[in-house]
Design a protein around this nucleic acid. Structure first.
Lengths: 352, 352
DNA sequence: CGGGTTGACGGAATCGTTTGCGCTTCCTAA
DNA sequence: TTAGGAAGCGCAAACGATTCCGTCAACCCG
């Protein structure tokens, strides 16, 4: 309500002095400073951050674009990003792209007009002219899980993850391993797929395309595709679902068909979300360091915003190692997380 | 990059004319308009929304304060709020309060300084001077699931929900019913508790305080409290967990102790998040219309922002009816959601 | 005593818009 | 012919901060 001018008037000084006084800048005497402070307190003065930002060209807002906050994977990363941002005095403008190119583009453009200081964007589409344009305008952008030449990115090694999952199944003696995945036009999914193929080939097994089901990452696709695989003349003995959400659908299908897991069908998921310990059997899954990814992305972005770049715009690519977390869906009796570990982040809190 | 002035210069008109031209305001001739448009296109002009907002005192940003986006309940409501906001051309500034009073207050103050057009705040603490202050400054605020005199609110009828859950258990023949809940200083939780007591009393049963466990809403509390109840000389035969997340911990404890659910222990949760159909046995839960709550809150808030209020500031309280969704954790074999319904929102999508 | 340094402060421009108001110009109707 | 209206347009004042730069007084020192 009260503006700087009113504060200045009440303290009997100019707005320039008042501004300096309130922000502890030099050029104001001791007593003037306290007089201004006093006036500000009396008026309940709060600076108008958008006016400040107009002048300083810093909004202290960063944009975060995710496909869908409702997905446990994204909400966990989003949470980590939000925490770091909050600590460093930035706010988050959040948008869901639903993996749709035009939604993402529209939102990014809006954020540009709102003059965010930086952008964190999740894998959505592979096309990305709007991102390159934004980058060209000097906007700091960090990508998560999406590779675009010339842009900075943090991602987990998805090919390695795919190999990890597949090798685990191979080690258990499986040779016919099905793959259920979202659309393969996205680099990260393609990588997982390649990792799967690589592991098979390395083990001397020719990948069998009839065991691969491409679709969405929704659990209903997992459900349908799993039934589909079961109906094959020679069904697989194990399924690698490239997403925990898909795996949920797979488990449901197997349960309905009374196929014992892991005895007659082993299942591996990906992302290691908290879903893995809620379902039964508990799901073996490839873990990405979600928190770390979020925290790193936010930290890197904000450092970039505040200190510029030391490396002369050389695009950075951080690749993190995935890790396999073995649970009951591949090895009977293995729990991986004991009882008291349950309050995994995310299922930890509620409130309504 | 390009400002309105540059556009105006290039088109050979004043910024005033340019502004009017670009926003389709009257007072500009046909040809001037198209000349300005042309210039804008050539320069790739995008209006600076923060400058506009400084002048118009509308930021088209709204603040959303939730305890924790990682919680399925909140992320679903947040998603609904975001969708409505997006459609109506508002962006979301998101913050997590962790149910902590000072975090919430700090964030709300920041949003005030950033001059959001309105605020949607979830139940966190019961204290709320900062909210009243903000409201007094004329800021539109809608509360979800928290009652503060004088402020507008949308909530589900938690007392009724508590009664629903408890009566269901009573109908099944249970008489010793445990309650595991988060801290009762929050009105919504207290309401559920009261509903529980009410149902018992109505059935002629004296509520037994030794069957009540107050703590956090994390699943570990559910886990510990359930074990605790099992160790009682006369343990309950049913447990009402006032949150699905708590119920997850309860189910785990029962599984570890090999207590068959629902035969020897029935369990009811609350919120009807997608967790309920992933766990085994599937969880009976009280459903709140999450989407509807989010959509209504956003719609009401934005209408308020844009059209003011017709009702002369008479605070509105919308109370929605909860609904019991029965599943296997109380009645053997009952699924409530069939296979093809699985892709419940939230588990539906993924992406990484 | 004079010149130079230092520190406190204010004026005014600026960030990029929107908009009230007044000035032209031109058209039309009496 | 002229009054009156309407349409098109620009000036300049906002919105609320930050900041460059100049002024002024006080002070120190040789």
């Amino acid at each position: 309500m009260a503006s700087l001018r009113e504060v200045a008037e009440r303290a009997g000084v100019s707005t320039a002095a008042a501004s300096r006084a309130l922000r502890d800048r030099p050029g104001v005497s001791r007593e003037t400073r306290s007089r201004v402070r006093q006036a500000a307190r009396e008026l309940g003065y709060q600076p108008d951050l958008r006016a400040r930002s107009l002048r300083t060209s810093r909004t202290h807002n960063i944009g975060l674009v995710v496909p869908d906050v409702m997905n446990p994977f994204f909400s966990e990363v989003a949470r980590a990003v939000g925490d770091v941002a909050g600590q460093r005095e930035y706010s988050l403008l959040l948008g869901n792209s639903d993996g749709l190119r035009n939604k993402e583009e529209e939102f990014v453009n809006l954020l540009l007009q709102k003059k965010v200081d930086g952008l964190i964007v999740f894998a959505a589409t592979s096309a990305s002219q709007h991102l390159e344009r934004a980058r060209a305008r000097g906007l700091p952008i960090v990508l998560i899980d999406r590779k675009v030449p010339g842009l900075d990115i943090i991602r987990a090694d998805n090919e390695k993850g795919g190999t990890l999952a597949t090798s685990h199944l191979l080690d258990l003696g499986h040779t016919r391993i099905g793959l259920i995945t979202g659309r393969l036009d996205l680099a990260t999914r393609r990588d997982r797929y390649n990792g799967y193929r690589y592991a098979l080939i390395r083990a001397g097994i020719t990948p069998d395309p009839t065991l691969v089901r491409e679709g969405s990452v929704r659990s209903d696709h997992g459900y349908g595709a799993a039934l589909d695989l079961l109906n094959l003349p020679a069904p697989p003995t194990a399924i690698f679902a490239t997403t925990d959400t898909i795996a949920m659908g797979v488990l449901l299908a197997l349960e309905e068909r009374s196929v014992p897991v892991p005895e007659e069908m082993a299942v591996v998921g990906y992302d290691n979300t908290y879903l893995t310990v809620i379902c039964r059997p508990r799901l073996t899954s490839v873990a990405q360091p979600k928190q770390q990814m979020g925290r790193w992305a936010a930290t890197f972005l904000i450092d970039w915003i505040e200190q510029g770049r030391a490396d002369g715009d050389e695009p950075v690519e951080v690749v993190l190692d995935p890790q396999l977390v073995v649970r009951e869906s591949t090895m009977p009796g293995v729990r991986a997380l004991q009882g008291r570990d349950l309050p995994l982040s995310g299922v930890g809190r509620s409130g309504s």
